[in-house]
Design a protein around this nucleic acid. Structure first.
Lengths: 292, 292
DNA sequence: TCTATTTGTGTATAGCGTACACAGATAAGT
DNA sequence: ACTTATCTGTGTACGCTATACACAAATAGA
């Protein structure tokens, strides 16, 4: 139901070129309507064609082709022509499956997110479960570094995106938080994981393009090291010269305790701090009614 | 010094089209060299021309033109032609200032970051100082939502980027952390702020394009609300139906305490948890030698 | 069987980043 | 002052992108 809108020629809603005025690009309501349309395309499945010839592939196949291109060569290589070629199609044939590239990418992103790994063993405490979730998410992001490259922002949230949220809510289901606090804890961890994985993602992408770890580390490190002896950055300079002068083998800087912290350990350090704070908050809550 | 490399025609290092093989796109070492070149362009100032006519504008002017375009119309509007037109130039004239668009964007990003606001009053505790820093960073990101739109990742870190790091190190200078821990605390807060500002940034961009808060909230909320009554998302569904069935006026969900939490308050909630955890870590450290 | 509808194709277009050659302007060396 | 090497901005051109549009073949309901 609600499959056919009656309108014949929807006149794709991308910016209509506006040849006269290049100042007013906010087409008043069109943009908000756009968001709704994108979301609809992600969620609704078209109700079976009817009359014409069978499509040669499924939308799922198109998405898989797009993903495998992005996986191999990065987001820049993900062009309509590349996808079409991989499917043995003309470029324009793709527009029978998705109305534009944005819609194809929306679908590819959600498919690429995948679903979080199913925890099968016995349930452990919320803290361990959250840590598993965070690691799984980070691993997923690093496995598909092109997701972080997306220039399309505020993409609609598809089924898989929601499934990651659902999985997180499972991890803290028994922690005794209010519904609102659950959502805010989710936002906090979700935000931390996304934001703190940038470096690891950048490394993953570099490696997937044939750059060695050493080359990457040297490039990133040499940026930082420009601070050394620059009077604008006395504290940074002091830290960088305090032990090893630059990026060490494993991580930007060694940790207290002698052994250098790896990049993953730095991530876990921050995650542990955040979870410490959440734990303290949970402990501070009045013990409500401890039902079962 | 080190200004002229002697090489005449550097033969710009973008992918050389590779007409025969479209499989090997990792030009072995070229990519790592690229990173270095980008960094150099960001940091080194060309040593004054010599012989020819005076440039009509400065590199700074070009960057300002680029920023004002992105500020007004978003990253997609930032084209070489638009920048040139705003300066009264031909498109190709820009290539006398920056070797390619990527370099112009690198410079624009760093300039757009700006420097963190100078704290003039008396120094307060590290925790308050870190909070100020986080708010300043979040405000800056929301003021320039196109920064989050950047498809170019792993951009080199310029002077302003470092200045934000330096400012953070000031906030925790007296907290008694080891150099390594300082860097990891910095990474954690930096990551949290960046990752947790996504929603606010998305809103800022929508608003700057003429979408009202209500329209935006409805679009984002309706995505979430697809979870309701979907058997795949029982927990999410329960939360969404527990109080207000969707996104409220202020924030995704109301907070415990009756009044709904605003989006900014949700951000602060997560930040406070993280800082609680950091505080606990600091308190757990052996008191070393309390010098002054 | 007829016919409405849909698929994949072919062709065309506007806009993008940018390579290249050139004319005029400028300063260094004479 | 004159020459000349060098740098600036311009004009033109190219390949690539997303995608609008018209069409032929294929299919299913009438």
């Amino acid at each position: 139901m609600a499959a056919r809108t009656g309108q014949k020629n929807p006149k794709t809603s991308t910016a209509p070129t506006v040849p006269n005025s290049n100042e007013s690009n906010a087409s008043s309501e069109t943009n908000a309507e756009d968001l709704r349309k994108r979301s609809r395309l992600l969620w609704e499945t078209q109700p079976r064609p009817g009359r014409g010839p069978r499509p040669m592939v499924s939308r799922e196949d198109v998405v898989q082709a797009a993903i495998s291109i992005a996986d191999r060569d990065g987001l820049a290589a993900l062009t309509m022509q590349a996808v079409a070629q991989r499917l043995g199609f003309t470029t324009m044939a793709l527009y029978r499956y998705f109305p534009n590239k944005e819609a194809l990418i929306d679908a590819s992103v959600d498919a690429a997110l995948g679903t979080p790994p199913q925890r099968s063993g016995p349930r452990e405490g919320w803290r361990k479960e959250v840590t598993y979730w965070a690691h799984a998410k980070r691993t997923m992001l690093c496995a598909r570094p092109w997701l972080a490259e997306l220039p399309f922002v505020a993409a609609p949230h598809g089924p898989n995106w929601l499934s990651w949220h659902e999985a997180f809510l499972q991890t803290i289901a028994e922690a005794g938080l209010s519904p609102e606090d659950k959502m805010d804890v989710l936002s906090a961890v979700h935000g931390y994981v996304g934001g703190s994985s940038d470096t690891a993602i950048s490394l993953a992408r570099a490696v997937s393009r044939g750059i060695t770890f050493e080359q990457w580390a040297q490039a990133v490190g040499s940026d930082l090291c420009r601070a050394i002896d620059d009077p604008r950055y006395p504290l940074l300079s002091a830290i960088l010269t305090s032990k090893s002068g630059g990026i060490s083998e494993q991580s930007p800087l060694p940790a207290r305790g002698g052994r250098p912290r790896t990049m993953d350990e730095s991530f876990d350090f921050g995650l542990d701090r955040l979870l410490d704070g959440i734990e303290r908050y949970i402990d501070s809550l009045p013990p409500a009614n401890p039902a079962p």
